[in-house]
């Protein structure tokens, strides 16, 4: 467990003069499930992009003892930071098993890579069970249903053994049952990990969030438990009040 979790200080991302993220401070403790909410354009995805190295940012984003900003994407990933995308991105032409095996193998040496896979790594078969895709392991990932692809992505993060999970709208387009199953999955994996979820689905948030951060126009508007945030008049005005 990485002691201090995710600590973001004065994070700024500027696109052509427009500050998409404008001085955000954020602390997410290990074991927490933090929901990031906010209207479109609030800077939620950009914040995750910055933390994972996809866009350039100023300020500081530390995970454990390591500074994340300024490092290439694959280095950040190897430090135990993993993410999913709004549209599930799995390797469609590879099988479920191959997807997971690749996710498990970033540390493999050249010789292992140049040989064929003889057996299924233990972490991979465990993840197959956890995400409920064991029976489908030899199907191409492209033939999975939408929700199954999202679970496969989460499974890939599990075998990657990340300590910080950043999930971008993991339940978008899922049925009610699938949402609950995903939420339960998040609870289990958060036990010894730090989880950050971007989500628009308010019911899902109420059911599964430990803490919530509301972003608005690139800044933190409110922070706290679900109840605290919902009671915040500023939040009601810009966000919840609308719905």
């Amino acid at each position: 467990m990485s002691g201090t979790g995710l600590v973001v200080r004065d994070l700024r991302v500027v696109f052509d003069g427009f500050a998409a993220v404008d001085g955000v401070d954020l602390e997410v403790a290990p074991g927490d499930i933090r929901f990031l909410i906010g209207p479109n354009g609030a800077g939620k995805t950009t914040l995750v992009d910055a933390v994972t190295g996809l866009v350039k940012a100023t300020g500081s984003a530390r995970f454990g003892d390591e500074e994340l900003l300024g490092r290439p994407v694959h280095r950040i990933a190897r430090m135990g930071v993993g993410r999913t995308f709004q549209t599930a991105t799995v390797f469609e032409e590879l099988t479920v098993l191959q997807n997971l095996d690749i996710a498990a193998g970033a540390g493999r040496g050249a010789l292992t890579l140049l040989r064929r896979r003889r057996s299924v790594p233990a972490a991979v078969s465990a993840a197959l069970e956890t995400i409920g895709l064991a029976a489908l392991r030899d199907l191409p990932a492209g033939s999975l249903a939408h929700g199954q692809k999202q679970w496969l992505e989460i499974g890939m993060l599990l075998v990657q053994d990340v300590k910080l999970l950043l999930l971008d709208e993991p339940v978008a387009g899922m049925s009610h049952d699938e949402r609950d199953a995903t939420g339960e999955l998040l609870r289990v994996v958060s036990a010894d990990r730090t989880v950050v979820v971007i989500e628009h689905d308010m019911d899902f948030m109420r059911n599964f969030a430990n803490t919530v951060t509301v972003l608005h126009a690139g800044k933190v508007l409110s922070q706290g438990t679900v109840a605290q945030v919902q009671a915040d008049p500023a939040v009601q005005q810009v966000y919840l009040g609308v719905g």
Binding site: L54, F91, L94, D101, I102, A103, G105, R116
Partner: peptide, 24 residues
């Protein structure tokens, strides 16, 4: 047919995703 071959296909289909799994 090696693991490298699978990785190569993965890079072809979604290079950015591979990066987020910790590969260059």
């Amino acid at each position: 047919r090696s693991r490298y071959g699978e990785l190569l296909v993965a890079v072809r289909d979604s290079e950015e995703r591979v990066r987020f799994l910790g590969y260059n």
